[in-house]
């Protein structure tokens, strides 16, 4: 069985054909060359494959590509509209607060953070911890990540005032 689908990723439509057993993570990487989506565990434990689907953070390793057809997908590559040279406030904050070490978890972590601050513009420590508990970071011990999400949220609030 081969199924033609349209994947809407970062505002662009891609008409491709997939088999039902193809996993969204692999399709994003292998066919659309979006390497910011990472394989970390393959079973939904590490969050490295996080993407935003219709406004909610989900795991692309546990999603069939065919199931994602027609829905809006945002990957880390699409966090800032193409051609926009500025970073997203969360991205800036991750660099400033030392929330990036090896960087492998970073794309998924930032997307989870974005899904959080979109709903909760001034999150507490515990709200942040809850939002990122599905994203494994083996380097940082999470402290600087929590700080970065707070700082990023603050930057977003500041910018919206302007």
């Amino acid at each position: 069985m081969r199924i033609p689908i349209v994947l809407k990723v970062n505002g662009k439509e891609h008409s491709i054909e997939v088999k039902p057993n193809e996993i969204l993570l692999n399709v994003l990487r292998d066919k659309l060359h979006l390497i910011g989506v990472k394989y970390g565990c393959g079973i939904g434990e590490c969050g490295a494959c996080t993407v935003i689907l219709n406004g909610r953070a989900i795991l692309s390793c546990q999603t069939l590509a065919v199931s994602a057809a027609g829905r809006e997908i945002t990957t880390i590559e699409g966090l800032v509209p193409e051609g926009n040279k500025e970073l997203h406030p969360l991205q800036e904050a991750f660099i400033e607060e030392g929330a990036v070490q090896c960087g492998f978890c970073t794309p998924g972590m930032i997307l989870s953070a974005k899904a959080l601050v979109d709903k909760n513009p001034d999150p507490s420590n515990s709200a942040i911890k809850e939002a990122i508990r599905g994203n494994l970071c083996r380097c940082t011990g999470y402290i600087n990540i929590i700080k970065a999400i707070k700082t990023g949220a603050e930057k977003i609030r500041e910018r919206s005032k302007r």
């Binding site: 689907l53 546990q62 994203n135």
Partner: peptide, 8 residues
């Protein structure tokens, strides 16, 4: 699970 699991 994490937020992503509960979203799925």
């Amino acid at each position: 699970g994490g937020m992503q699991i509960r979203n799925m």
